[in-house]
Simulated scan of single mutants.
Amino acid sequence: MTAISTRLGAEGLTLGYGDKAIARDLTVEIPDNKFTVIIGPNACGKSTLLRALSRLLEPTAGSVVLDGKSIEKYSTKQVAKILGLLPQTSIPPEDIRVAELVSRGRYPHQQFLRQWSQADEDAVTSAMEATGVAHLAGERVDRLSGGQRQRVWVALVLAQETPLVLLDEPTTYLDIAFQVELLDLCRRLQREEDRTVVAVLHDLNQACRYADHIIAMRGGEVIAAGAPADVVTAELVGDVFGLACRIIDDPESQTPLIIPVWQTA
Rank of each mutant, 00 (worst) to 15 (best):
L167S: 04
H109D: 02
G68N: 09
L144H: 00
E129N: 15
V200F: 11
P170F: 00
H135Q: 07
S103A: 06
R187G: 00
L236R: 08
L156Q: 05
G45Y: 04
R7T: 12
P251F: 14
G105T: 09
D122S: 09
P163C: 05
K77R: 10
C44L: 01
A130D: 08
L136R: 07
Q118D: 15
P163E: 06
V165G: 07
I39E: 04
I223C: 08
L174W: 05
T48C: 12
T171L: 03
R187K: 13
Q148I: 07
V222D: 06
G238R: 13
V180P: 10
Q78V: 08
N33I: 12
L158G: 03
A207L: 12
Y210I: 05
S75G: 10
L156G: 10
Q206H: 11
S54F: 00
N33S: 11
V98A: 00
A159F: 01
R188I: 14
V237L: 02
R97Q: 13
G45H: 02
D194W: 05
E169C: 09
R151M: 07
T171E: 08
T2S: 12
L136C: 09
K77W: 10
A80S: 10
A21V: 07
T27W: 03
Y107F: 15
T14D: 05
G12D: 07
S54M: 00
V98N: 00
W262E: 15
G238E: 13
Y107M: 14
G16R: 09
E139V: 14
A216L: 09
A155L: 01
T264R: 15
G105S: 10
L101K: 04
R106D: 08
Q118A: 14
V124H: 00
R24N: 13
L136I: 14
P228F: 03
R151L: 00
G45I: 06
L49S: 12
P163V: 06
E29I: 03
G62I: 13
L174S: 02
A134W: 15
D19H: 11
K81R: 13
G242M: 01
L26Q: 11
G219K: 01
P170Q: 01
T172K: 14
S126N: 15
P41W: 00
K69N: 07
K69W: 09
A229Q: 14
A10D: 14
L201M: 11
S70C: 13
A225F: 07
F112M: 13
I38C: 05
A123K: 02
